[in-house]
Design a protein around this nucleic acid. Structure first.
Ligand SMILES: [Mn+2]
Ligand SMILES: [Mn+2]
Ligand SMILES: [Mn+2]
Ligand SMILES: [Mn+2]
Lengths: 221, 221
DNA sequence: AAATATTTTTAGATTAGTCTAAAAATACTT
DNA sequence: AAGTATTTTTAGACTAATCTAAAAATATTT
């Protein structure tokens, strides 16, 4: 049986995302935290994934995805992001609503379905949160982007992505009128509280905390 | 926890479809056959559904859906048929490919999703196999239709539905150029082998076996 | 109305995924 | 280097869904 369960898929995707943020082997606890489950459950699952050669694993040393695990996770990310794009672009959902639904849709198995969906959407390269959508072969489009604190005082950028895509953060951005494509100019930085004054689309002035700035990616213009 | 598992949902839908074809309580074996599982498993599940008040059940007397079971099943049918319509109308799948994929998609839980999808598709009343799609309140559109054997010799009808929607039957219909919307005229019936000669869209002559005719629904014109 | 056949239920196992608590391994402090 | 804290693994138990085999109930035939 070379089949992969929904649960195994969710673990693979979580491990993939942890791998993106570190070169080190991923700790059991880190996975447990990401999956909101116990370390014991993670150990059980890791053993299973290891037996299926989807992760490299040595006791007490953490895990990395194998090539086959990586390509499976990439396919899940592709599905997740294409469905998110569908929900926003075709069904008029807003960007903070789609993650949860895509979390389910990503497990629909048909490759033909996802390739057709990709075409139907016009082969988008980025999802509603600005994250890259791997193509049918698993290749990601790389984009030169910097986080807002890296943008020089006086310089301008276009908001192209967010680091954090939790509901609460995205809803907060909605309130601030910060959507993807928005033009942001750095007016002034205040050392006192590490806040930043920006101008949105050339008109609206706004003060952002450093926490918010760290979660915004812009393309310079 | 008033949650319904994917498995429970599949049972509810199967029972719903058996109920459509008979007023009698549905036998354990009938469900087992529909679900391709053992009678023992069905008994277990029936007890569970009964405890949740989704079916009426008495030992050895078979089951019927309760109102709440019925509305749950109707919602599943709605989702199934809307997704099938999406796959055919928007992603260019053909009618024999979509059942299997919709079998998965129907379990995606968001009501908002399905209502948006319904609007996106233009609130279709029938799915790619001619089956009615219940609206958001669970109401089916009724259509006056007859099976091909009921259509008089010399009379004409438009193909609006199929009884059997297995892959093999639908592929066979493809070969015969019989798609929904096709005009069918009964030319002659042969008692010898119960076959029927028809004309398709006013040009192509064709002999159909009774087995095929019984699975075709037409609207008279 | 018995005898036989069929259907349905129960009993007991199995597998996937989860949990808590305890044991073992590793890392950090003093 | 020893002691303490943290992380990870193991042990054992639980639930949902499944199975086979046997028992019980119902239906059919003689
Ligand atoms: Mn998921
Ligand atoms: Mn996203
Ligand atoms: Mn299903
Ligand atoms: Mn259908």
């Amino acid at each position: 049986m070379n089949t992969t369960s929904r649960t195994e898929e969710n673990y693979l995707k979580a491990i993939f995302q942890l791998c993106e943020r570190s070169e080190e082997p991923i700790a059991t606890n880190a996975i447990a935290h990401a999956m909101k489950t116990s370390a014991a459950s993670v150990t059980d699952m890791i053993k299973k994934l290891s037996k299926k050669e989807l992760v490299h694993y040595q006791k007490h040393k953490g895990v990395r995805l194998t090539d086959s695990g990586n390509s499976m996770a990439t396919s899940l990310v592709r599905k997740h992001r294409l469905w998110e794009t569908f929900l926003v672009n075709k069904l008029n959902f807003s960007w903070e609503e789609v993650h949860e639904i895509a979390e389910e849709l990503e497990h629909i198995p048909s490759k033909k379905l996802i390739d057709r969906l990709d075409d139907f959407l016009g082969n988008p390269k980025f999802d509603p949160h600005g994250d890259p959508i791997p193509d049918s072969a698993g290749n990601f489009t790389f984009r030169k982007q910097i986080s807002l604190p890296e943008l020089a005082e006086g310089a301008e950028g276009v908001l192209v992505g967010v680091q954090d895509d939790t509901m609460t953060f995205l809803q907060y951005l909605n309130k601030l009128n910060l959507t993807l494509g928005t033009k942001i100019k750095i007016v002034e930085r205040f050392d006192y509280d590490e806040s930043t004054k920006i101008v949105i689309n050339g008109k609206q002035e706004q003060i952002l905390t450093n926490k918010v700035c760290l979660n915004l990616f812009v393309k310079t213009i």
